[in-house]
Design a protein around this nucleic acid. Sequence first.
DNA 1: GCATAATATTCGTTAAAGGCGAACGTTTGG
DNA 2: CCAAACGTTCGCCTTTAACGAATATTATGC
Lengths: 296, 296
Amino acid sequence: MPALNYHHLRYFQVVAHEGHLTRAAEQLNIAQSALSSQIRRLEERLGQSLFERRGRALHLTEAGRIALDHADTIFATGDELLATLQQRTGERQALRVGALATLSRNFQLRFLRPLLGRSDVEVVLRSGSAAELYDALMGLQLDVVLTNDPPRADALRPFHVHRIDEQPVGLIGTPDHVVDGLSLAERLSTAPLLLPARSVGLRTRVDALLASLGVAPQIAAEVDDMAMMRLLAREGVGLAIIPPIVVRDELDSGQLIEADRLTTLTETFHAVTIERRYPNPLLSLLIDAPKRSGHD
Amino acid sequence: MPALNYHHLRYFQVVAHEGHLTRAAEQLNIAQSALSSQIRRLEERLGQSLFERRGRALHLTEAGRIALDHADTIFATGDELLATLQQRTGERQALRVGALATLSRNFQLRFLRPLLGRSDVEVVLRSGSAAELYDALMGLQLDVVLTNDPPRADALRPFHVHRIDEQPVGLIGTPDHVVDGLSLAERLSTAPLLLPARSVGLRTRVDALLASLGVAPQIAAEVDDMAMMRLLAREGVGLAIIPPIVVRDELDSGQLIEADRLTTLTETFHAVTIERRYPNPLLSLLIDAPKRSGHD
DNA sequence: GCATAATATTCGTTAAAGGCGAACGTTTGG
DNA sequence: CCAAACGTTCGCCTTTAACGAATATTATGC
């Protein structure tokens, strides 16, 4: 009995995911006739059909499902091998970091600080949406994703979530917005507010706070991008509910003032990685103890 | 950039484990020159050496270690795929059971009872030493191993241990050995005893019991094979310390008598499996809730 | 220290596997 | 009922793998 042919298995994997010989053949840059015969050989080797030919469509059989599951593991492991060895090649080490585009730049800077001085390390920083970044993480194009909105891990997305930092949240604005002698509830009801957008985890807790104080807020803007929030606060558009770290420079220079500290609210920052056999060694300098999140 | 060649990777795996091209070539039934060139191509594809050529010996480089780790996972997954599909082939299902040669036959029978009536199921029963059986389990030649001495699981042996049954232990012998009106301590000190061998987990607890009673036992035999223990008890060699299930027939017929029940002792029986993506479905009929044992 | 056995590497040749494209068969949808 | 979209089959060609002999290297015994 010949050994399992992994070449065939690879073709099978693509066909199974695409659902069509034709599309799979395009993706693999070979003729579909070649695919057809190679898939057939795999079926012969395994002694059972992997696809049910229903008309011109291909449907996985139960055996096909089993085979695909194993194939996915096999080729994911192979890709991980390539990525791991890739990263080791060359003298200069690289760490590829993805950051949510809406995340505070100062926080990103703090996270990366231990590596920034080093001439032997290259930091590749890419920002994007959560979906983009997690896809890139799964595809091993990124080593870590920074976010203030930790994902749920599950079997398909076996993420590790590391809590990096927790920042208090304050009510911050230009000096002319920050009138003396007002209570928190008075400030929140009288001044126009810059709130985190509803897509941000913090927003839920802000709403809860406003409700508990019986405040009907006057919302000037809802923003998910912290850099934009900073600009709007500097422009004096309103009082922003943000962690002071976001506008640290402006606070230092007196351009902005923290009117109140919202002690019941905090913003947490997380670094998200995936299970790697040989994780990027640079990560250990930035993240302490890897804690597993989610189920098995 | 061409994709990773799994054919090359397979060769590499064997060479890395054997440590020699020559031996690997024998195992693979190909010329060593072929191996040499294929390994070289893999190294070229990966862009780094996998072996350090120290004289005529091959030593894994760090990259080689990484590659071997991944290769082991990959081919273990492939083997599992083959084994899983193998088992599904044909109408008759088969369950391959390994049992410690020294284990009570009645217990084995009880465990397998749900399958024994079924004409559509074939039970393959193989007995052997613990080492043999666990190797076969790891190599996917067995679906489950029955034992009264559960193994420790670790990263290299990711076993699941299922507690199947717990049997009380009694003091059992022929009627002429079972004199009326004696205390347990008196029986244990006066009659010759048949004890489980020191290799059996139960023995430690038997010794503890004897010590706590202040008994200096008169040991007739130490036996690890329950079938042999049964024969010796029937021969009237002495009082046996065994679970009654081992000699159930003889107890029913009056050929043997249970003189005392050792309430502080029990023998537990376990079914050991390994993590499988698609476990043999017959197992679910025999084992309730799979519980993970040992560490990760 | 030198011969020898054991091992890895190189190279030219041969065998096997993979791939191509055209022709054919089948299903689906207008 | 025809055309478009697929999957399958088949003969031919290309690429890859394997072989075996020659070569190089290094431990080991005498």
